[in-house]
Simulated assay, not measured.
Amino acid sequence: MKIKCIITDDEPMARKGLRGYIEKIEFLTLVGECEDAIQLNTMLKNQQVDLIFLDIEMPEMTGLELLSNITNPPKVIIVSAYEQYALKGYEFEVVDYLLKPVSFDRFLKSANRIHALLQTEQKEADDYIFVKSDKQLKKILFKDILFIESMENYVIIQTVSSKEIVYTTLKQIHESLPQDIFQQTHRSYIVNINQVNAIDGNLLNVNSYKIPVARNLKDNIFNLILNNRLITKG
């Protein structure tokens, strides 16, 4: 994954330092430099960008003022000499806040954080299936599926916001899903184990639904859900 980034800082030496750091990191690609927030505002209208390294104190308009005036900005890492803006910066959901002078070690840590974040977001965006329901082809994200219930020649896909009835078998749809996340708990049910919020005897609480677990599958299913995270009294 290549991350396209822009440096915005009114200090030439600060831009030079960040440019040198970016050149050392293989997955970062510098696509532009701006001397102030107004230049950045113009560049964002003409350039697709994944990440902004943004100074705060700049002429005409501060970095925070710019963030308050744009919708759906790219990811932002603030690079500033003033720590008092940190809390305000995080109100804009910035990924990180770097205090000048920035060491390469600290810069690399921040770059790795944004790389992991964007990879996760990309994976989630790619994790979906299309199903035919109500004479339409509907896109369903894996993470939104609560469970799937078999109804003879049909299945019901229950998501966080809808119920889709699809003409297929439980076996066929299971083969289209990630096997580590979607587990068959019963001959009639497949459950997204990430959506389980409680275990009650032989039942799984999934949102407001109770899904049965077959006796012969119970130990394996419970181990997968708990994943060594069960806290007991010693």
Rank of each mutant, 00 (worst) to 15 (best):
D219S: 10
E93S: 15
L217A: 04
T71P: 03
V166Y: 07
R113N: 11
P59V: 09
G89P: 11
P59Y: 11
S68W: 14
E23R: 13
L18M: 14
E11R: 09
M58S: 03
Y21R: 05
D50H: 13
I173E: 08
G201S: 13
K109I: 14
F147L: 10
N220S: 09
Y97V: 04
S68K: 15
L170Q: 11
K109D: 06
Q119G: 08
D126A: 15
I225E: 04
K109Y: 14
E60F: 13
L118D: 11
K135H: 15
V94Y: 04
T8R: 07
D126W: 00
I156F: 09
S110V: 06
I199N: 03
L170C: 11
I181L: 14
V166G: 10
L108F: 09
I25D: 02
D126G: 08
Y189W: 06
F53L: 12
N194G: 03
A116K: 15
E23G: 07
Q172S: 14
T168E: 11
S161K: 13
M1L: 11
N72C: 02
H115E: 14
T71L: 10
A198H: 14
N223M: 10
L98K: 01
E121V: 08
N192A: 11
A111P: 05
P212T: 05
N228S: 08
I25Q: 02
P212Y: 01
D36F: 09
K138W: 04
Y97M: 04
D55W: 15
K123D: 14
L98Y: 03
R15M: 11
I190C: 12
C34N: 00
D50R: 06
L203Y: 03
V213H: 09
S80C: 01
K143I: 05
P73I: 08
Q179F: 08
G20T: 05
R229E: 08
L117P: 01
L98A: 02
L18Y: 05
N41P: 00
N197R: 14
Y128S: 05
F147N: 13
L18R: 07
D105K: 14
F182P: 10
D126Q: 15
I114G: 12
G63S: 10
R215L: 12
E175L: 08
K75F: 12
A14R: 01
K210R: 13
N46E: 15
V131M: 07
T169K: 00
N197H: 09
P73V: 06
V102N: 08
T62F: 12
I25P: 05
